[in-house]
Design a binder for these strands. Structure first.
Length: 339
RNA sequence: AUACCGUGUGAUCUC
């Protein structure tokens, strides 16, 4: 998780040298670490090696790999590996299927997702669970199929599966995107009735959705409300509102919010600063955007590709083409490549 | 017996 996979490998080597017995879960952790660090090919090689060493990979091992393939949009390979686990006599479980379904939804393969979903329904070993439904609902929401999302949510409840906070958050987002604010209120009430505590991620969803609809007073009120209720807004929640102000070029309110964040001990991150750059450009104050950039270089957070994209885009929209080009050309000096 | 490894939700660019 710290990106120190090589160190993890050397620890494993020391265990081997000392004759400490290793189990498959130790390899599972390594394989998963490689995948989290975008080294899918190394993970595949490691799997082959551990088989040759005489270890028996279990379904967790394969599910890690399948998840990595799925996240890399290699869904054909992921499904092939799923079939292979069955041939090996392993039982893919609900986690295995959910990992693939998420990828299929992301690339828009709802046919494939539906096929696996049906397969799960016919298999006692891996019935769809609340995660399966949330994955599908989120996928449908991302392509704007809100009514399908609602239907699936009802279907889930009909199956006797109790929605958890994440399932509600997912559906709340879908409901906000269709602009049905009354229904949003109902869903939050339903969470309360079901004894599901409303936490920072639910509030954050509401703040973001109100902000994206230009309902900035409502978004601000949600933040006030959560503070009253003793829930501390996090950087994601604050930045959602900040971006609302920036998207409208309301930089006075954006600055006030930055002050409130400082007061609450919430450090703005690169996302917050990128949003400010966009905002100053939107407010036709490219010099303001340049000062934000300069502050990032001097004091952090370190600019990323999106910082430059926002700045270049914003400068162009203010007819500052040659400065925009200079910034684009300076990316390499900051260790970045234009995308 | 318990605990440790794999899946789902919220923020920034490309109008």
């Amino acid at each position: 998780h710290l990106g120190r996979v090589d160190f993890a490998f050397s620890l494993l080597g020391q265990h081997l040298k000392l004759g400490i017995p290793l189990k498959v879960i130790h390899f599972n952790i390594l394989i998963n670490g490689l995948i989290q660090n975008d080294r899918l090919d190394h993970a595949k090689v490691l799997l082959d090696k551990i088989v040759k060493l005489g270890f028996q990979p279990n379904i967790w091992t394969y599910t890690s790999l399948i998840n990595g393939l799925s996240n890399a949009d290699k869904l054909g390979e992921a499904v092939a590996l799923l079939k292979k686990t069955e041939e090996l006599g392993l039982r893919p479980d609900v986690v295995t299927y959910n990992a693939i379904i998420k990828g299929q939804c992301r690339v828009g393969d709802f046919e494939g997702a539906r096929r696996l979903f049906r397969e799960m329904q016919g298999n006692n070993n891996c019935r769809p669970d609340v995660t399966t439904y949330s994955t599908l609902i989120s996928g449908l929401c991302k392509v704007g199929l809100f009514s399908h999302a609602h239907e699936l949510f009802s279907e889930m409840k009909g199956q006797g599966i109790l929605p958890d906070a994440i399932a509600y958050n997912t559906l709340i987002r879908a409901t906000c995107m269709s602009g049905d604010w009354g229904k949003v209120t109902d869903l939050v009430a339903e969470m309360v009735e079901s004894n599901i505590p409303i936490k920072v991620d639910t509030y954050g969803t509401l703040v973001d959705m109100y902000s994206k609809h230009g309902m900035l007073d409502q978004a601000r009120d949600i933040i006030r409300f959560m503070i009253e209720r003793g829930v501390t807004p996090d950087i994601i929640t604050f930045t959602a509102l900040l971006d609302g102000y920036c998207s409208c070029g309301r930089m006075g309110e954006a600055s006030k919010l930055m002050e409130l964040m400082a007061e609450k001990g919430c450090e703005p991150n690169v996302v917050s600063f990128n949003s400010l750059i966009k905002g100053y450009c939107k407010a036709q104050d490219p010099d303001g955007a340049l000062s934000v950039f300069q502050k990032m270089v001097d004091e952090g957070p370190t600019p990323d590709v999106i910082t430059f994209n926002s700045l270049v885009d914003g400068l162009c929209k203010n007819n500052r083409f040659s400065v925009a080009l200079q910034f684009m050309n300076s990316m390499e000096a900051h260790g970045l490549t234009p995308n």
